[in-house]
């Protein structure tokens, strides 16, 4: 996102820039709580992430386990699993995304309102995992939708999911509402919907979305290999 829009962005919110953390700490000791709207907004958002109730495969069972009494995802404000994408903030891609399922996953992502986040849970959602050699297996959900957090494991333990969720909360807290590095959902020029692949005669068409996913440069290897 190096290109900036031609229209000038509004000036940053003044409270964020003019008072140092030390000043704020000093004020807090005198009983005055000072914060910025941005901070308050991000604090609220990050502690009430509503995930989409959307299980794909084995990892979904561990996702359910994370919601039960022992792990209790409610401690992090993310226990309200919404069956409808229209009410959800977070898509946890929990399991193998097959090529037959990929259009539906993209459609669900498109139906979620901004701000929205995506966690790729487990090896299959990241890269195809153990099923990478399958003809019907998508080699990573990031070929079609942008992913914020990757949680490795097969399946990841519920603790790993909670850790991923906490990392996402940190990421949300770092987001800016204005300025050059404003968050994705505040910039109308950044797409929030992505083309849905079609079922082809041999494979999905297209097989990936080049706007979202670019193959990484090849691994360094010797010339004779």
């Amino acid at each position: 996102m190096s290109e900036l829009p031609s229209t000038p962005l509004p000036a940053p919110f003044p409270a964020a820039g003019n008072i140092t953390d030390a000043d704020r700490e000093e004020l807090r000791r005198h009983g005055i709580l000072m914060t910025s709207l941005e901070e308050l907004y991000n604090w609220g958002r990050s502690n009430s992430i509503w995930p989409l109730q959307f299980g794909l495969a084995c990892c979904a069972i561990e996702m359910i386990a994370a919601a039960t009494a022992r792990f209790d995802i409610a401690r992090f404000g993310a226990e309200i699993f919404r069956p409808s994408p229209r009410q959800a903030d977070l898509m946890i891609v929990s399991g193998t995304v097959t090529k037959k399922m990929a259009p539906q996953v993209v459609r669900l992502w498109n139906q979620m309102p901004e701000p929205k986040y995506c966690i790729a849970m487990g090896a299959c959602a990241i890269s195809g995992g153990p099923f990478k050699q399958g003809y019907n297996v998508l080699k990573g959900v990031d070929r079609f939708i942008p992913v914020d957090i990757y949680i490795p494991g097969c399946p990841p333990r519920p603790e790993a999911l909670l850790h991923g969720l906490m990392e996402l909360q940190k990421q949300i807290k770092r987001e800016h509402l204005t300025g050059a590095d404003a968050a994705r959902h505040t910039r109308p020029e950044v797409p929030s919907e992505f083309p849905i692949p079609a079922y082809g005669a041999h494979d999905l068409e297209p097989t990936m979305n080049p706007a979202v996913w670019k193959p990484a440069p090849p691994l360094p290897r010797s010339g004779k290999a």
Partner: peptide, 26 residues
């Protein structure tokens, strides 16, 4: 059906007998 068709049988035919054991878990 088929939204979770992960090609277990095809993969198993391309790996050793023991190599399929972890796939049966899944």
């Amino acid at each position: 059906f088929g939204y979770l068709h992960r090609n277990h049988e095809k993969i198993a035919e391309n790996t050793t007998y023991l190599g399929s054991m972890p796939y049966t878990d899944r």
